[in-house]
């Protein structure tokens, strides 16, 4: 997973993510941005063009770069996982059907 990044941060009025309050703010703006992506049917953040720029701006303001990369990657991974889980399920059902017949 994208745990591991090497981007140094610029220390300009960054949120203090060691506090619950700022973490909450980051998560909320992330959820708002992702909701916008969902509405547009976009999985991978960045593929939406300028459609969610207001949400994206807030997201980038409230979260650290490393967090954004992590959340974005996780969103994509989660989608892939959903697909492969669905595939595994259909395969399993098919195998069951075959066993019965």
């Amino acid at each position: 997973m994208g745990w591991f990044d090497w981007i140094s941060s610029k220390k300009t009025e960054e949120p203090d993510l060691t506090t619950r309050k700022d973490r909450q703010k980051c998560w909320e703006s992330r959820d708002a941005y992702f909701a916008c992506l969902d509405a547009k049917g976009v999985i991978k953040p960045g593929d939406e063009g300028t459609g969610c720029s207001a949400e994206q701006g807030k997201y980038e303001q409230n979260c650290a770069k490393s967090w954004i990369d992590y959340f974005n990657q996780r969103r994509v991974l989660a989608e892939q996982q959903k697909e492969s889980l669905a595939m595994a399920k259909t395969q399993e059902e098919e195998a069951k059907r075959r066993r019965k017949s």
Partner: peptide
């Protein structure tokens, strides 16, 4: 844990 020995105190990284 994945923190490298020479990680910068100002770095913006995550630790696996």
């Amino acid at each position: 844990f994945s923190t490298p020995k020479d990680a910068s105190p100002d770095g913006d990284y995550l630790v696996d």
